[in-house]
């Protein structure tokens, strides 16, 4: 049986761990709120932009803009979005595992990987995946310029025919406790086609469809990637909040058990001492 002192030390240690997980949960909750607001205000814009792009691209041949042009797929690139930090449950493990599956399933397309977030990078690097570039510290200073920079790089590779398809694997934010892994095609841009019956006739374009397409395609790419980064960031904070909440609860359970154990041990020690004293007194009497 463990001595009283060691049990007491255990309790103190679990308690301090619990304090840390509780604090981390609070921090994650605050960050989640911020990320969520940002995401929810970006989603409508991203969606509407896709719709407008669909209306215009639906009326034209696919090769009107280099980012729309679909080629025969010879080389594929995956953009894997994970987190920079751990302690967020299975968030990083799930996304990395999914990425590995995708890469393994498309071996003949010589898949290359771009990682955003160092956890995904660490995982895939050790598993014989060819990693083209790794963007760290994106989430620390997440802003639109970052999304623009990465999107432009990807677009550059695409137009230079380095890759014929660019997919992005990320966590879509559902709510604070659940996120969904999504594999989405980033390039070539797949225009959201309006239903045939809703297809407008006599659409007027000003100045002309080509010019508008030229401006809207890169913008759409920037905005979509920006939305995706926000989705992932909100998901990460949500996952961390949940994970730290569970950890705090587990710590509380453990403390409860240990305290019970401690009290039992203390009682046993007292009983033992009492029997010894009584035993001694009885012996003196005789």
């Amino acid at each position: 049986m463990a001595t009283l002192r060691t049990i007491k030390r255990r309790i103190a240690s679990v308690r301090s761990t619990q304090q840390i997980t509780k604090a981390m949960k609070m921090v994650a909750a605050a960050k989640l709120r911020k990320a969520q607001n940002q995401l929810l205000s970006t989603r409508p814009y991203a969606h509407e932009l896709e719709e407008v792009l669909g209306h215009i691209a639906g009326r034209m041949k696919r090769d009107q803009h280099p980012l729309l042009e679909a080629r025969r797929i010879k080389r594929i690139c995956y953009v894997v979005i994970s987190a920079d930090r751990g302690l967020c449950g299975s968030f990083n493990a799930n996304i990395s595992r999914r990425a590995l599956q995708e890469v393994a399933a498309n071996k003949e397309l010589q898949p290359a990987v771009v990682t955003i977030g160092s956890k995904g990078y660490d995982y895939l690097r050790r598993r014989d995946v060819s990693i083209l570039s790794n963007q760290v510290d994106v989430f620390n200073t997440l802003d639109f310029a970052q999304a623009q920079r990465i999107a432009d790089q990807l677009a550059g590779w695409y137009t230079a025919k380095k890759f014929d398809q660019i997919m992005v694997i990320y966590n879509e934010f559902k709510n604070a406790v659940s996120q969904k892994i999504v594999v989405e095609q980033l390039l070539p841009i797949v225009p959201l086609m309006p239903e045939a019956s809703k297809f407008p006739v006599g659409y007027i374009f000003e100045p002309n469809p080509e010019r508008i397409l030229q401006e809207i395609c890169p913008l759409n790419l920037h905005v979509q990637l920006w939305r995706i980064l926000l989705e992932s960031s909100a998901s990460e904070h949500g996952a961390r909040m949940t994970a730290m909440g569970t950890a705090s609860d587990n710590a509380a359970d453990m403390i409860k058990e240990l305290v019970l154990y401690y009290n039992k041990a203390r009682q046993a020690a007292i009983t033992k001492e009492l029997t010894e004293i009584i035993g001694g007194a009885e012996a003196l009497k005789g």
Binding site: V52, H55, I56, P200, V201, G202, Y203, I204, F205, E206, P207, R211, I212, E215
Partner: peptide, 17 residues
């Protein structure tokens, strides 16, 4: 981009920068 324009009810489908 081609100058100010006005839109009223039942405008034709229109897309502009």
């Amino acid at each position: 981009v081609g100058g100010y324009f006005g839109v009223l009810y039942n405008h034709a489908p229109f897309l502009t920068a």
